[in-house]
Design a binder for these strands. Structure first.
Lengths: 220, 220
DNA sequence: AGGGCTCTCCCCCGGACGGGGGAGACGGTT
DNA sequence: AACCGTCTCCCCCGTCCGGGGGAGAGCCCT
């Protein structure tokens, strides 16, 4: 293991936190804390100057928060470091923000020292993302959308009716649906009527709305 | 470090993969491969019997795939193991599926041996999630929704027209919109006409669809 | 003072839509 | 054999919708 040490910069507005992190990381062979920053603005300039491999970035900081600092660092450098965002609460919307701007990882402040060390090592070596239980929230968030609560009426629709509803949701008229299905317009009409009855709505527009709202169809 | 070893079960339909994983993991102090399974069904029963700490679960397996096996294990045991889902491609929709059913982590087969070991250690110790670059996709997916691409025609709508479109998207008729806005039905009608023209659609249903698809309004 | 935009409201008209019936054909279940 | 569900198609009828005109009041900007 004669690999060059992983160079780390700490960005946190509280001196005690920086010190604690430095003690933990410097005690590890192969890890080296090369710089610190107490504000987002400082973080940006320090990182530009020192070009570390990894940055531990606090979210809440004066002047510029960790998210925007991350954004600026990643967009302004040709070989940006891997940035691990650190926060106290896992249900922060910061999680999503951090991922959106391109952070490589996410870490809770209450993480164990070993987790911290392994997080830095992993992030430094690959583009792997290391996560605390915060990702549970992300996963839950995603799950909340994907398997949308099964539409109660969807099960009652026949194959044909479901097909008609999908066509309705593309903005087709009864005649166009009939053409598409190669059936008479009267048939399309009665299928539409069945859909309206089973979804318990008044007109095709409300049916389409119900389809979107229930997750029967999804945007894009 | 006199902690009891982390007990691992491997589930993969290819013997060579299982062997490779076993070699890597058994070489690590503190890790112990206690069982293997070649199908999803086997995985479920083996895990129930051996009660390991961690399961490395392949996605593609005969009989029952890794996702459903994960689901069954997690729902059927009082203290289920942490399950790390393993796959070959990072852009699989399996990533989302795995998270949805409650997998603790996600790993690529081409991950380095050290990453694998650390993944197992991390997952065994905490409820942390360890991720490959696959999470990039998840993050991107999430980001793709949040700042929805601004509708091109939304800017051209007047305040009143936008209001009318939102009401249209709740399934109201022209008369109901008029009542809601405290204006004559002719007025609501002409606003609707303006919306249809500016959104370049034929009828109110297509307008509502455009509103959903463009992100002008969002489900739920 | 004039012009442009928005909001308001009116007319007529044709077509699409939705409600109410009914009915034949097919397949599966009892 | 009788029944039910599904898909297919037909009739009539009233309403809502969208297209085409036009027009007056208020506003802001030049």
């Amino acid at each position: 293991m004669s690999a060059p040490p992983v160079r780390v910069v700490l960005a946190d507005d509280e001196r005690m936190v920086r010190t604690a992190l430095r003690v933990i990381l410097d005690a590890e062979p192969g890890l080296e804390v090369v710089g610190e920053a107490a504000t987002g603005a400082q973080a940006v300039s320090v990182v530009r100057e020192l070009r570390p491999d990894v940055v531990l970035m606090d979210v809440r900081m004066p002047e510029i928060d960790g998210i925007r600092a991350t954004e600026q660092i990643l967009s302004g450098m040709e070989t940006p470091p891997r940035i691990v965002v650190v926060t106290t609460f896992e249900n922060d919307s910061y999680v999503y923000e951090a991922l959106r701007v391109g952070a490589a990882g996410f870490l809770l402040k209450r993480a164990a020292a070993e987790d911290l060390v392994q997080a830095v090592r992993l992030v430094a070596r690959s583009d792997c993302l290391l996560f605390p239980s915060a990702v549970r929230a992300l996963a839950a968030e995603h799950a909340r959308r994907q398997p949308a609560p099964p539409p109660p009426w969807a099960a009652r629709l026949t194959e044909r009716e479901a097909e008609v509803l999908r066509l309705m949701a593309t903005g087709l008229t009864n005649a166009e649906i009939a053409d598409r299905l190669r059936v008479g317009s009267a048939t399309a009409k009665s299928h539409v009527a069945a859909v309206l009855a089973k979804t318990d709505v008044r007109d095709r527009t409300q049916a389409v709305i119900a389809a979107y709202e229930s997750g029967f169809i999804t945007p894009r």
